[in-house]
Nucleic acid binder design. Structure first.
Length: 264
DNA sequence: ATGCATGTTACATG
DNA sequence: ACATGTAACATGCA
C-alpha cells in the first residue's frame, strides 16, 4: 500500500517511541527485509540506544538514534509500522520490534519486499542529503519539473511518474490519480505534451501530493470522495467525472486505470 | 486452484 | 551505452 502520504502516516506511528531508550530488540535477521545488512551487528547497535527523531522522503523513512546510528526503513509493497502493547505477543511477520518503556515499536511485512538499512554517520547520511526534491517541496517547481521530465521523454507517462529518482513517493495509485486529474492518458509520453498539458501535469502532481499528505498522513483518512482512488481498484468502476466505465490495462508492467472519455 | 497485488531490482532483449 | 520488458522476490486474498 504505502506511497508518499501513507509512508508519512506509518512513520508517525512510532512517534510515541521518540526519545525512548530501546530496552530489547527482536529481530528475524534471516528475513529478506534484512538483505545486505549484518543483522546481529544492527541488533547490537540498537540495543540500549535511544530513538531521537524520524524523517521521511518519498517512500523512504530514516530514524535517528544516538551515537551516529541511523535506521532506514522502506515498506515495500506490504510493510507497515505499528505499536504493540508491551504485554502483547509479537506476530508472525513482525520482523523487527524494538521494546521501549511505552510499547513495542514494530516493523511488520508479510511479503518482505520492504527493506531495513543500517547507516552510521555523525550528521544526516550522505545519500539522504542527495535525494531528489520531493513533489511537495518548494524546490520541486515547474522549472525543475520541466528539466527533470526530459529524462525518459518517450516512455509512457505512467512509467515516468513511478520513477523514484524523479517523482519520489509517487506510486501506482498516485500516478493514476495524477494523470486523471491532468486529463492526460497514461500511454502518452512527455514528448507528446504541449506546454499547456505539461503545466496541467505539473499542477496535478503538486495537487495530488499536497492533498494526499493533508488527508492521509495525519490519521489515514481517505482521499476526497471525488477522486479516482475510490473507483480504480476493481474492474467495472465508473469515472467520477463522466460516469462512464473506467479503462484498465497493464502499462510498464503495472495495473493502470484511466477514463478514456475524460483523458486525452 | 488460479491469478493478482499500492515496489524494486536484476537480467534479457532490442 | 541506452531504453524497454519480464521475472523474481514471499505471502495473502478473491
Amino acid at each position: 500500500m504505502p506511497e508518499l502520504a501513507e509512508v508519512a502516516y506509518y512513520c508517525s506511528r512510532w512517534n510515541p517511541g521518540l526519545g525512548e531508550r530501546i530496552l530489547r530488540v527482536h529481530m528475524n535477521g534471516q528475513k529478506r527485509c534484512f538483505r545486505g545488512v549484518d543483522a546481529s551487528q544492527l541488533a547490537g547497535a540498537l540495543s540500549g540506544n535511544r530513538l531521537v527523531s524520524s524523517h521521511t522522503h518519498g517512500k523512504r523513512m530514516l530514524f535517528k538514534l544516538d551515537q551516529g546510528l541511523w535506521l532506514g526503513i522502506h515498506l515495500g509493497m506490504t510493510g507497515s509500522l505499528l505499536m504493540r502493547r508491551k504485554e502483547a505477543e509479537l506476530e508472525k511477520h513482525d520482523h523487527l520490534a524494538l521494546e521501549t518503556r511505552v510499547a513495542w515499536l514494530v516493523f511488520n511485512d508479510p511479503r518482505q519486499f520492504g527493506r531495513i538499512e543500517h547507516h552510521e554517520s555523525k550528521g544526516l547520511p550522505e545519500f539522504w542529503r542527495n535525494l531528489p526534491p520531493e513533489t511537495i517541496s518548494e524546490r520541486f517547481d515547474f522549472q525543475h519539473f520541466r528539466r527533470f521530465a526530459e529524462k525518459g521523454a518517450k516512455q509512457p507517462l505512467k512509467s515516468a511518474l513511478l520513477d523514484q529518482s524523479r517523482f519520489p513517493g509517487v506510486g501506482n495509485w498516485m500516478a493514476d490519480e495524477i494523470l486523471w486529474h491532468s486529463r492526460i492518458r497514461p500511454q502518452r509520453s512527455i514528448a507528446t505534451l504541449n506546454e499547456h498539458e505539461l503545466k496541467d501535469l505539473f499542477r496535478a502532481i503538486k495537487r495530488v501530493s499536497r492533498i494526499a499528505m493533508k488527508r492521509i498522513a495525519p490519521d489515514f483518512s481517505d482521499p476526497p470522495k471525488s477522486w479516482l482512488f475510490h473507483r480504480r481498484w476493481k474492474a467495472g468502476g465508473l469515472c467520477p467525472k463522466t460516469g462512464a466505465h473506467l479503462n484498465r490495462d497493464s502499462i510498464g508492467g503495472r495495473t493502470t486505470c484511466w477514463s478514456n472519455a475524460w483523458q486525452r
